[in-house]
């Protein structure tokens, strides 16, 4: 008697897939559905009984659009996001690449300690890490930056960098704080990629006469193309949606709310922040963010030629 191999396999397949599927369903698919749904309701102050069954169509989206076009604060959120994401992305990718290359060329024993140092911001709890920067940029003379600048005679009295130096003060602070966390990601990915390049390739380039610089530009960076694409896309998407560090900096008054608030933080503040909470509007803003993220992600992948990398070889092998 023949056993039906396929049906047993399907059952086994389901059993193995079920736990992962449940997690994805519970924490990913259902929240997306709820968010999209809520963006079509006038939900506010978590009054679920009153608003959950009321559908207002695109009203939230219209409100969001008119806020962006007319409200200077909302418009500033868009500008903040563009500046923050663009500059931090460049810092994260190029900084990560630079650190990885530096690690690659220095002695292994030294570089291990060096890499650990750069991983510290990522290993430190967000609140503790935020607190360090809080004291660093503090607007009074207890702020480290202020006391250094004052003792060097660069400034006469303390400056509240994140509140007074508009807009580059708050922008610089959120970029620096997030940048220090972000570079280590690129560094780890690029460094391990560099380490996995066959030793012979590097020896060959050296014998061919390449200096460190030529080796980097002609061999190493081209071979990191795939990793550059990955890190760029990944960092772009995570910068668009990150808000934890920025939230603390704004709440603690290190940076101004107007110039420090990015779109992701705006979504959070609108839904959970002080005063009136407007979940409908927040959900609409979140949906727009996700759509933008998807489009930008797709553009990066296209621009960096992902499809070229997965075409099959056509030679005789």
């Amino acid at each position: 008697m023949k056993r039906n191999v396929f049906s047993t396999n399907k059952v086994q397949l389901l059993i193995f897939l079920l736990p992962a599927f449940l997690i994805v369903l519970l924490f990913y698919i259902i929240p997306i559905i709820i968010t999209v749904y809520v963006s079509f309701t006038p939900m506010r102050n978590w009054n679920i009984d009153k608003y959950f069954n009321v559908i207002v169509g695109l009203q939230n989206y219209n409100r969001l659009f008119s806020l962006i076009t007319r409200d200077p604060v909302a418009r500033q959120v868009v500008v903040n996001t563009i500046v923050f994401v663009a500059i931090t992305l460049v810092i994260n990718v190029l900084g990560g690449l630079g650190l990885a290359l530096a690690n690659f060329f220095i002695d292994e024993r030294v570089s291990t300690g060096f890499r650990t140092l750069w991983l510290l911001p990522r290993m430190t709890p967000i609140a503790v890490y935020g607190l360090l920067w809080y004291y660093f940029f503090h607007g009074s003379n207890i702020g480290m930056l202020n006391s250094i600048a004052m003792s060097l005679g660069l400034i006469k009295k303390p400056i509240a960098w994140g509140q007074e130096v508009i807009p580059w003060g708050p922008w610089s602070i959120i970029i620096i704080v997030n940048g220090f966390v972000g570079v280590s990601f690129g560094m780890v990915i690029f460094y391990s990629a560099l380490k996995s390049i066959p030793r012979e390739l590097i020896i060959a380039a050296r014998v061919d006469g390449a200096s460190n610089w030529k080796l980097t530009t002609n061999i190493l960076i081209p071979l990191l193309r795939w990793h550059l694409l990955f890190v760029t896309t990944w960092q772009l998407l995570s910068l668009l949606t990150t808000y934890a560090h920025t939230f603390l900096l704004v709440e603690w008054g290190v940076v101004s709310r107007t110039y420090g608030q990015t779109w992701a933080l705006y979504v959070f503040n609108t839904a959970f922040g002080r005063g009136e909470q407007d979940q409908g509007l927040a959900a609409a803003a979140a949906v727009i963010l996700v759509i933008f993220g998807a489009i930008l992600g797709w553009i990066t992948v296209r621009a960096l030629g992902f499809n070229k990398m997965i075409t099959k070889p056509k030679g005789d092998i």
Binding site: P198, E200, I203, V207, G209, N218, P222
Partner: peptide, 20 residues
């Protein structure tokens, strides 16, 4: 250093630059 010796080196795994 290698670049000042003008030697040619051929490897077991060819070590061709894959992106060129």
């Amino acid at each position: 250093p290698p670049r000042e010796r003008n030697v040619g080196l051929v490897f077991q795994n060819y070590a061709l630059y894959p992106h060129m």
